[in-house]
Design a protein around this nucleic acid. Structure first.
Length: 466
RNA sequence: GGCCCCGUCGUCUAGCGGUUAGGACGCCGGCCUUUCAAGCCGGAGGUCGCGGGUUCGAAUCCCGUCGGGGCUACCA
């Protein structure tokens, strides 16, 4: 049997981080088993579904590298088939029409609440004769749930979960306007798409019981269910916009790498012993449902950032230049060919010190800035009167000795200057760093000088020394 | 209210009857050193939610309890 999984978001907002993890798990499971990963857009709520959200979901999945194996299915397009199934159930006596009004239903719920009884549809029209139906009112179609016995879900993550059928009420399959509800649509689509494993958020666990009854009523095989725990915010509640829980696009914008996000999300609820850094290839090899935890996890930006720093160092220098170029551009620093060459050459030292693309761009700015370069506060403080003295001497010696403009030679030369000056090396190096980078921190000084080149170094020194 | 799920350092987690309860992030200190990172070394941090049991022995099994979360729509 070929494994078929699916990710089925409703396009009512961006692809949030919890959805991204669900998609990742589905994708990994399919890849691990050599199966297929499908995408279905659950857009049956016409009020809340938007094209912008659909695009955001596609973009997010694309960025994360979670590509579906077939064209996405749009659930709304399949509404005729969904209704067909409901009508079949109706014809077979497994569903019935219900003429209760919204007001009646609200009253029903309120009464139940007041009496502290379970809140569910009371089955008014289950046995009532349709001839008693009020005129001029469109009925909904409800499924006839079994009223005795129990429904068992052998969940691949949660284990065996049992609920008494008496707890299940006759849910709506078709709305009064004839459109299918989610409970109907998911089942029909999962069946028709041949989905073998339904991996989704824990918030659907209770729905699984209801949906199982629709599968049964149609005589269809149940897929394997796997309900993965939700991701919580720092306060322990389901992650939402309130927590600043953002769409994956926000993590991209703040400079995260997709491979870092994947690794982070993977470790949120899934483990393989003590392994932390797990490549996607390795994840495909290792991933399985039995190692998925059952308890919810809190989102931790610090850990994501640490992982991101790791993957940043692994990235190709040229790729990183391309990735930060637009950011530098946004900072008002145009990356021309010369700047690109410098960045490319200086990237090894730069990426070692960065955690995200935004601070990588920030720390790379001095390579791109045109003279005279801006000085930050720390640099300005470094350039006191004594520092000027030393820098003048250094500049003169640099001219006179003319060491080859490469790292080792430059360093040896600077050290000899400091020595003849009778000061610790730092007393010369720090002011020099300030003059050349406008910062108190930077990659190795002589690496910077080699990248900048003789003319630029002399120019920047002149800007400071006059 | 009802039903369902969950509960190991601050956080993510390993653990599946016998471990000094391990790792990672974060935090602190050291080494390295031209700054900052990285790297390496070390440290603080957990009475395994709590209470009973079972057992020679329990984070691991059972029961209860408390806490958290989810669902309870003609939303998905």
């Amino acid at each position: 049997m070929t494994v078929i999984t699916r990710f089925a978001p409703s396009p009512t907002g961006f692809l949030h981080i919890g959805g991204a993890r669900t998609a990742l798990f589905n994708w990994l499971y399919a890849r691990h088993h050599g199966g297929q990963f499908l995408l279905r857009i659950e857009d049956t709520d016409r009020q809340r579904s938007t094209d912008a959200a659909i695009d955001a979901i596609f973009d997010g999945l694309d960025w994360l590298g979670l590509h579906a194996d077939q064209k996405p299915v749009f659930q709304f397009d399949r509404r005729v088939r969904h209704a067909e199934v409901a009508h079949q159930l109706l014809a077979e006596g497994k569903a019935y029409r219900c003429w209760c009004t919204q007001d009646e239903l609200v009253a029903m719920r309120e009464k139940a609440r007041a009496e502290k009884k379970p809140i569910r549809y009371d089955g008014t029209w289950r046995d009532r004769d349709p001839s008693e139906a009020p005129a001029g009112l469109d009925p909904v179609v409800r499924i006839k749930m079994p009223q005795t016995g129990e429904t068992v879900i052998e969940d691949a993550v949660q284990g065996r979960v049992v609920v008494q059928n008496a707890e299940l009420d006759d849910m709506v399959l078709l709305r009064a306007d004839g459109t299918p509800t989610y409970m109907l649509s998911v089942v029909v689509d999962d069946h028709d798409m041949g989905v073998t494993h339904v991996i989704r958020g824990d918030d659907h666990l209770n729905n699984a019981f209801r949906q199982a009854q629709v599968f049964l009523a149609m005589g269809w095989d149940l897929p394997v269910f796997a309900h993965i725990p939700l991701i919580h915010g720092p306060d322990g509640a389901k992650l939402s916009k309130r927590h600043g829980a953002l769409g994956v696009d926000a993590y991209r914008d703040m400079g995260c790498l997709p491979e870092a996000v994947r690794n982070y999300l993977l470790r949120l609820g899934w483990a393989h012993g003590d392994d932390e850094i797990i490549s996607t290839e390795q994840a495909i090899q290792w991933f399985d449902l039995d190692a998925v935890g059952r308890s919810p996890a809190r989102f931790d930006m610090d850990k994501l950032t640490a992982l991101n720093a790791h993957y940043l160092r692994l990235r190709d220098d040229g790729e990183l230049v391309d990735l930060i170029a637009p950011r530098l551009d946004a900072m008002g620093l145009a990356v021309d060919a010369a700047a690109q060459a410098r960045l490319r050459q200086g990237m090894a030292g730069l990426k070692q010190r960065a955690r995200k693309l935004d601070d990588l761009a920030e720390s790379a700015a001095f390579y791109v800035a045109s003279r005279p370069i801006p000085m930050d506060e720390k640099a300005a403080k470094l350039l006191d009167v004594d520092a000027f003295q030393r820098l003048r001497v250094y500049r003169d010696r640099l001219r006179a000795d003319a060491p080859p403009f490469e790292e080792a030679a430059l360093e040896a030369h600077a050290r000899s200057v400091a020595e003849s000056l009778g000061v610790g090396f730092g007393k010369l190096a720090q002011p020099l760093r300030a003059a050349l980078t406008g910062r108190g921190v930077s990659p190795g000084l002589f690496e910077v000088m080699a990248v900048l080149g003789k003319a630029e170094v002399e120019g920047r020194l002149a800007d400071v020394l006059g």
